[in-house]
Design a protein around this nucleic acid. Structure first.
Length: 963
DNA sequence: GCGACCTCTTA
DNA sequence: GTAAGAGGTCGCC
């Protein structure tokens, strides 16, 4: 890098938009319901640039009031851009506030776009001998690139690329970056509403530039063109010249480049931290500190003093002193000078940095009394005291995350905020068992309420020691899931959000996961105590917080009668596991391998070379660049060719290679995801597969399953279905029983909407899709064709998801207008269904949430949003969440009741799996008839509505047969 | 080794 | 159009 001074000019809006849309699928929402994606996205990029580049000079440039000049030239200019999303408009003042607090120069010029401001400044700085980096993803800026002016472009997937003259030449196939203007003028830009020349796209524009060098060159030489293109270009000369003007970044904005104004200076750390905390940003504080500490190094004289700390001042407790000694060295308050805090050189420790600047409380700034209880008289007294309590929070510490194999390391207890006890477990398993026998009276006391975060885990761990946790339970994770299902529920987040407290981080304690990660057992007992008791203490405090909120949102009943009892049910199912026929899968794997190799051979032959078929990138290049199977291949959002199923299926009938690729894909997926992966997941200690049900992940109230996911085992295709044969009963005395709710979601929507036409059909036991077809097409049930039924079925499902004519036509052979007609007739047939749907949307608009039959809520923050797309999604959620969620509620009730009957009746039959509308059981053969009746009846009467629920029972020697 | 992206599996 | 989890590739650190 040359020793020239460097200026970074940041295109604020471009980075804000990019940040916002990058997170659109998974927007960051804080506890106040504010969408902070745009702020977060922008700040991440911004701090990243500073951290990477340590610029001497920089400015962030905003637009204000749009470009007067361009609006004058062309009134449609940027007119039909989508309206700025609300979240972005709200973000701007925050971003300005943060930048101001950071003392970052902000450039705005009323009546000019940021492009023009940046362009003008870049050129002026160049004259002063600066190297300028324009930080923007917007390719329009390429026209400004020169020997000393560069584009600094964030790329998807992280990192940046610098575009100098060679890069621009290559990207745009031009000799001079100025030709980028001609390029943009020719092909136009829909997002900026630059019209461009009709019929000219990227390819043609490049061709024209290569031949004529510029827009003017092209327009003077239209006689060299032929056919349609000639006519079009000649007819649009004016438009071409205008487009070029619109695409030209102006270099005469009345702004001055005074180097002094662009110098980096010391930020107001307290203020920045305050704003971040208000927004509930956590990791960003790390990044901020990191980015600016480096700058402190580069510019001696600036130093960053932390806000006043009272660290350690009131720590008179023994444990506090221990930790003070451990941590003192890392904190700035104990270091002599500013150099100490430099993170220069790469050995940075972000978590430490956060601590220094955060005003959040930590174990070091909070008075606490955490005590280690060793064997002997102390423990005896502790146990006596423990049994006197009515409500106790506990937390187990183990050697790992798998409760089947993890060993207890210690147990923490707390029943008063700020206080708690830790009982370390001996390394020896038998001695630990002995300790647990002493604790058994506590755990099995029905009268003592047990509080915890993710109690399912602790209950499973203790079950392995034959200890049953009895009595009332309060799980803070479940409570928060009901309070706000769209947020995350891990304890660190909850503590920071609700208690303004940062708990000791587990990674700080045992290291990042991977080769060097320690086990809790390797940590000194004093440290274990701090960490474990803090968890119990924090959880106890969270409980106080959440208890009130449950009442306020009317979800107490749902919590007490569904989620809490279900936790025990799930723990039992997970501990039970399911038997897997490994030999069968092994055989299947060999067969698949043979077929895959064969397909590979055919594909390589057709392609004329060997390549990685599993790489969408390589596959796309072979199919569309080399074999040119199609003129205009569809691209993904990252600019790769799309090789997705629907794209390829469309081509399949004409090309054998495509059919082979699709089959290859199917088989490879099957093999890697299921046939080969499942045997790996067999738990050696039980010889069974134990999935982990997540009770707080799905925003609608459904469960999810992982390690392995047993809720997506193939069934649709013949080859895939084979995998189900590998799920088998415990032994020859057992069979598998599968019980499925038939059309539960449609029944729910029929019942909730009180749509008589549909209710009657269900009551009469009609095939609902045929019945719908008969009504919609106005024919008798007997006259319904397969195609009509199939279309009716698609609409029925579509309704549940909030269908559009567009979506429907994509899924059927129907055209867009036929789809629209079908939907219209459908609504006429079932008028109350439509009413119900709009009622849900209205309810959400008025209340901000929708709810299920049991009152489970889902908050829809975008329901009154201005952005069409985002609001549309919220409206579909308003329709779908109560349906999907009510179905989830109902099967949960059934599971709880069935589990109760099975355990109280000491049946040998066990419930093993839940797949949203299906339950799978390992049934002891002598109990089979009783089970069939009991399960069907319990599931059907779990929740009584105006539509009867119907359950289909299947029995077999494997999961497939049971269907 | 980690994360983004793409693709594919289920209800 | 709703709700999930997982595997392979590829670029980044």
């Amino acid at each position: 890098m040359s020793d020239k001074k460097r200026l970074f000019l940041i295109d604020a809006y471009a980075l804000i938009f990019r940040g916002y849309y990058a997170l659109i699928k998974n927007p960051r929402i804080n506890s106040k319901g504010m969408d902070t994606s745009a702020i977060m996205g922008f700040m991440n990029s911004f701090l990243d640039v500073i951290k990477r580049e340590r610029p001497d000079h920089l400015a962030v440039c905003f637009d204000k009031g749009g470009s007067d000049a361009r609006n004058e030239m062309y009134e449609a200019y940027k007119a039909n851009r989508d309206e700025t999303p609300n979240a972005i408009r709200l973000a701007i003042p925050y971003i300005e506030k943060i930048l101001t607090a950071m003392h970052i120069p902000i450039m705005v010029k009323e009546g000019f776009e940021a492009d023009d401001v940046i362009g003008t400044l870049a050129k002026k700085a160049e004259k002063e001998g600066y190297q300028t980096f324009m930080v923007t993803p917007d390719k329009d800026f390429a026209q400004l690139v020169s020997e000393n002016i560069f584009m600094y472009r964030p790329v998807f997937g992280g990192g940046y690329e610098t575009w100098g003259i060679p890069e621009v030449r290559k990207k745009f196939e031009v000799t001079d970056p100025l030709q980028v203007i001609d390029f943009l003028g020719m092909m136009g830009d829909s997002s900026d509403n630059i019209p461009g020349l009709p019929g000219v796209g990227e390819k043609t524009a490049k061709k024209f530039l290569a031949e004529f060098g510029s827009m003017e060159g092209l327009l003077e030489n239209t006689d060299k063109l032929k056919g349609k293109m000639k006519e079009k270009v000649e007819a649009n000369k004016e438009l071409g010249l205008l487009s070029k003007k619109l695409a030209t970044i102006m270099l005469d904005v009345p702004v001055e480049f005074n180097a002094k104004d662009f110098e980096m200076s010391e930020p107001d750390v307290t203020e920045v931290t305050k704003i971040f905390e208000e927004l509930e940003f956590r990791r960003l504080t790390d990044n901020f500190v990191k980015a600016f500490s480096i700058e402190a190094m580069a510019a001696p004289g600036t130093s960053h003093q932390p806000p006043s700390t009272n660290k350690g001042s009131n720590n008179s407790l023994p444990l506090g002193e221990m930790s003070k000694g451990q941590r003192g060295q890392k904190t700035i308050s104990s270091s002599a000078g500013q150099g100490q805090f430099s993170l220069f050189g790469g050995d940075s420790e972000p978590s430490v940095a956060t601590e220094v600047y955060s005003s959040r409380k930590t174990i070091e700034t909070t008075e606490h009394f955490y005590q280690t209880v060793q064997a002997g008289i102390g423990r005896k007294l502790f146990l006596q005291n423990l049994l006197k309590q009515t409500s106790v929070c506990f937390d187990t510490e183990t050697t790992g995350l798998n409760p089947l194999t993890a060993e207890l390391v210690g147990i923490a207890f707390s029943w008063e905020a700020g206080k708690g006890f830790y009982l370390p477990c001996p390394d020896d398993r038998e001695e630990t068992q002995h300790l647990l026998e002493q604790l058994r009276p506590f755990f099995e006391d029905e009268k003592i309420e047990k509080i915890g975060q993710n109690l399912k885990y602790d209950i499973k761990v203790l079950a392995k020691y034959n200890v049953v946790v009895k009595g009332k339970l309060f799980d803070t994770m479940l409570a928060h899931y009901l309070i706000n299902p769209d947020m995350r529920h891990n304890m660190d987040v909850l503590a920071e959000t609700y208690l303004n407290y940062t708990p000791v981080s587990i990674t700080e304690l045992i290291g990042k996961k991977g080769k060097n990660q320690l086990s809790m057992r390797d940590i000194p007992i004093e440290k274990q105590t701090e960490y474990a008791v803090e968890d119990a203490d924090v959880t106890l405090q969270l409980k106080e917080h959440f208890q009130n909120e449950l009442g306020e949102a009317n979800i107490q009943k749902l919590f007490d009668e569904i989620e809490i009892p279900l936790l025990r049910v799930l723990a039992d199912m997970e501990l039970e596991g399911i038997n897997l026929d490994e030999a069968f899968l092994k055989k299947l794997s060999v067969e698949l391998d043979k077929d895959i190799l064969n397909l590979e051979k055919h594909i390589y032959e057709a392609a004329g070379e060997e390549f990685n078929i599993a790489s969408p990138k390589q596959l796309g290049e072979i199919l569309f660049d080399k074999l040119k199977l199609i003129d205009k291949p569809k691209k993904t959002k990252t600019g790769q060719y799309s090789t997705a199923e629907d794209v390829l299926s469309y081509l399949a009938k004409d090309h054998k290679i495509i059919r082979d690729v699709l089959e290859y894909r199917g088989l490879a997926k099957l093999k890697s995801t299921y046939v080969d992966a499942l045997p790996e997941q067999v738990e050696s200690s039980t010889n069974r597969v134990h999935t982990d049900y997540m009770q707080t992940v799905a925003a609608t109230g459904r469960l999810s399953s992982n390690n392995p996911n047993l809720q997506n085992i193939p069934i649709r295709t013949e080859r895939g279905r084979e995998v189900r044969k590998a799920f088998i009963p415990r032994d020859k005395d057992y069979v598998l029983l599968a019980a499925d709710y038939s059309q539960i979601e449609l029944r729910i929507i029929a019942a909730l909407s009180e749509e008589e036409n549909m209710i009657e059909a269900f009551k009469n036991g009609e095939d609902i899709h045929s019945s719908t077809a008969a009504k919609v097409f106005n024919i008798s049930l007997e006259e319904v064709t397969r195609e009509q039924r199939s279309n009716a079925k698609t609409v029925n499902f579509g309704i549940i998801y909030g269908v559009s004519a567009f979506g429907l036509s994509n899924q059927t052979d129907l055209s867009r207008s036929e789809s629209k007609e079908l939907i219209d007739t459908y609504y006429k047939t079932y008028p109350k269904l439509r009413n119900y749907m709009s009622e849900q949307v209205d309810f959400a608009r008025d209340n901000g949430y929708v709810q299920t039959v049991l009152g489970r809520r889902r908050y829809l923050k975008d329901i009154n949003g201005r952005n069409q797309v985002v609001r549309g999604a919220a409206e579909r959620n308003a329709v779908n969440a109560p349906i999907q969620g009510s179905a989830a509620d109902i099967i949960k009730i059934a599971m709880i009741n069935i589990h109760k009957i099975l355990s109280e009746g000491s049946f040998k039959t066990k419930m093993l799996l839940q797949v949203h509308d299906e339950l799978v059981f390992d049934v002891y053969k002598p109990e089979l008839e009783a089970m069939k009746t009991m399960i069907k009846s319990e599931m059907e009467k779990a929740y009584i509505m105006k539509v009867p629920l119907d359950v289909e029972i299947g029995v077999g020697d494997n999961w497939l047969e049971a269907h």
